[in-house]
């Protein structure tokens, strides 16, 4: 079970990194995530059933997420709609789109098709158990994505995203169109989210259009939990704590699912717990900020 927590934590941390990108770096609270996560899952599932190479499937899932994110950003940019509403619009539309992608079905099992994981398992059979092979595989994937993001955020373009989240005027003063940056940023973020969804579908063995319900809340809770673990202004630490936060969040959810019955909790209460975690995090952050203000 402990491997399970880590594997799920790692898979969902890719999504949390996307949420971190929009919420924390871009200051663009993006709710598209609830639609782009299942979109990644259903694109992947559809590809696998069509016999498409799993790696191509992952790339297509990523591209689908990018497209979803760009849609949200463009609705916001062109129609001057608040980001939250733009995200909700895309998310709602994606529900129908996702069902279309699954050829008018709400879910699709992946038990009889070859996935990235079945390939890995076939290859590692004999050395280590399937669960550990998954763990090592996802650890490598997450390290790769995290390192990539760390590098990306210190490039000229990456720094510009930070500036956008802090001070949009500064971006304009630099001669950069904030609208284009938003499209790129929200696009990339949802690409990551969809990639996470594609991995989640393969790990769970099915894709479901309802996979995304409350995903943005769990991602945000993971990001916030991580912020209590480490304090720094270095980007490598900021991304690391997103990953750690997601694993911690998954661990809390596991505890809730398996031991919650001691306090009469059912799995249906998990979303409530996720929400309460965010509220506690917000309250704690508020108290901490106040303390710091008093000190200076």
């Amino acid at each position: 079970m402990i491997e399970g927590i880590f594997v799920e934590g790692l898979i969902y941390s890719i999504m949390a990194l996307g949420v971190f990108f929009t919420f924390r770096i871009l200051d663009f609270p993006d709710l598209t995530v609830d639609g782009s996560f299942p979109m990644g899952a259903v694109v992947m599932a559809a590809c696998l059933h069509q016999g498409v190479n799993p790696v191509t499937g992952l790339l297509l899932a990523f591209a689908g997420g990018v497209l979803a994110g760009v849609t949200t950003a463009e609705i916001h940019n062109r129609l001057k709609v608040p980001h939250l509403l733009a995200g909700i619009l895309t998310m709602t539309m994606l529900y129908s789109v996702n069902i279309r992608i699954l050829s008018n079905r709400a879910n699709l099992p992946l038990l009889r098709v070859e996935t990235v994981l079945t390939k890995i398992h076939a290859w590692s059979e004999g050395f280590i158990s399937a669960e550990w092979a998954s763990l090592i595989f996802f650890l490598l994937v997450v390290i790769l994505i995290k390192k990539g993001l760390d590098l990306f955020f210190i490039t000229d373009m990456g720094l510009m995203f930070g500036a956008l989240g802090n001070n949009e005027q500064m971006v304009r003063t630099q001669g950069v169109n904030p609208a284009i940056l938003k499209s790129i940023g929200v696009g990339l973020s949802n690409g990551l989210v969809a990639l996470s969804g594609a991995f989640a579908a393969q790990y769970q063995g099915f894709a479901d259009v309802n996979l995304g319900q409350g995903i943005v809340v769990s991602g945000l809770a993971s990001v916030m939990l991580g912020e209590f673990l480490l304090r720094s202004n270095r980007i490598s630490i900021l991304t690391l704590r997103v990953v750690l936060g997601t694993i911690l969040f998954k661990a809390i959810m596991y505890l809730g699912r398996y031991y919650g019955y001691y306090i009469n909790m059912t799995p249906n209460d998990l979303k409530l717990i996720a929400g309460i975690l965010i509220i506690i995090s917000l309250a704690a952050a508020n108290i901490r900020n106040k303390k710091e203000k008093n000190r200076s």
Partner: peptide, 18 residues
Amino acid sequence: DNMMITSNKGFKWPKISL
């Protein structure tokens, strides 16, 4: 980071100048 952001104007590509 701030100084890097303002050190040249116009669209920025993902390359590391810092």
